[in-house]
């Protein structure tokens, strides 16, 4: 009997991620920029994942789309929210996880799950980019750093600069003022990370933090934010091998469950 092959496509505001799975085994995973067209990004990511696994689209039994652009993935069999997908993906990676903190490109979420990865409760941030990947991207640009360099820069800081605004526009003004005052760049970066951590910890505490805690989404790749958040929460944070693909992974897992049920 041929084993079932499923795909999860997570079309986020900044990146589009695709995961191909065969009966619980990851065949390939792809991360690309979403750009301006969610639909074509999904097609491209799916195509690249297929090539990487040496498969054709017709080999795939079920596709589930998730993320903000999920509705525009016309070739998906169904759409599931990234909240459910991050929950399922996290539980698969580490079954003891009960709280998932996902900071993506455009929003942040605190998700409580049961042992099977079913979402029990969740909270999302306000409807703006405050404290998200996009926020860090804008700040990195202002500080003339690559996004990936922020974590390393943070490690060189002796202290954190005070950043009181979380609004991307106002915080950028604050950063400009700090640059003008001659505050060292690493301290500004740590200040930014601390402000994100405070905001995210508030979200997680409002939901009610239950151990163990996993962080997913692109921002989890920034060790400065992870450390600051861990300190604010007073809890150890588990990091997946590739935090950015957890949503797509969860989608592929849900596709497997859904397809298996429909095939019965």
């Amino acid at each position: 009997m041929r084993l079932m092959i499923t795909a999860g496509i997570d079309v986020g505001s900044l990146s589009t991620d695709a995961v191909l799975m065969r009966d619980g085994e990851t065949l390939s995973q792809i991360i690309i920029n979403t750009g301006a067209m969610a639909r074509s990004a999904a097609e491209r990511a799916f195509g690249l994942a297929l090539s990487a696994a040496g498969l054709r689209a017709s080999d795939v039994d079920a596709v589930i789309a998730t993320g903000y652009g999920r509705m525009s993935v016309s070739f998906a069999d169904s759409q599931v929210t990234e909240i459910s997908c991050h929950g399922r993906g996290s539980a698969w990676l580490s079954p003891k996880v009960r709280t998932v903190i996902d900071i993506g490109g455009q929003d942040s979420k605190a998700i409580r799950i049961d042992g099977k990865g079913n979402v029990v409760d969740f909270l999302m941030n306000d409807k703006c980019a405050a404290g998200t990947g996009r926020f860090l991207e804008v700040m990195a640009q202002r500080l003339e750093l690559e996004l990936a360099e922020l974590g390393r820069e943070d490690q060189q800081a002796a202290r954190a600069a005070q950043i009181s605004s979380m609004c991307t526009v106002f915080a950028e003004s604050e950063v400009v003022s700090l640059i003008a005052q001659g505050v060292p760049r690493p301290e500004i970066v740590r200040g930014l990370h601390l402000s994100i951590a405070e905001r995210t910890a508030g979200l997680a505490n409002r939901l009610g933090l239950a151990p163990e805690v996993m962080m997913t989404g692109g921002v989890a790749k920034n060790p400065g934010v992870v450390r600051a958040l861990s300190e604010k929460l007073g809890a150890k944070i588990i990091l997946p091998p590739e935090p950015q693909i957890v949503g797509a992974l969860g989608a592929a897992l849900i596709a497997q469950q859904k397809h298996a049920r429909q095939s019965v």
Binding site: T81, K116, N118, V119, D121, K127
Partner: peptide, 21 residues
């Protein structure tokens, strides 16, 4: 569109486990 994700996720939470998604 922002409400869509929240509402859909809430419906996923409420749905019976066997019929979720």
């Amino acid at each position: 569109e922002q409400a869509r994700t929240r509402i859909q996720a809430f419906l996923e939470v409420l749905g019976p486990p066997t019929e979720k998604y």
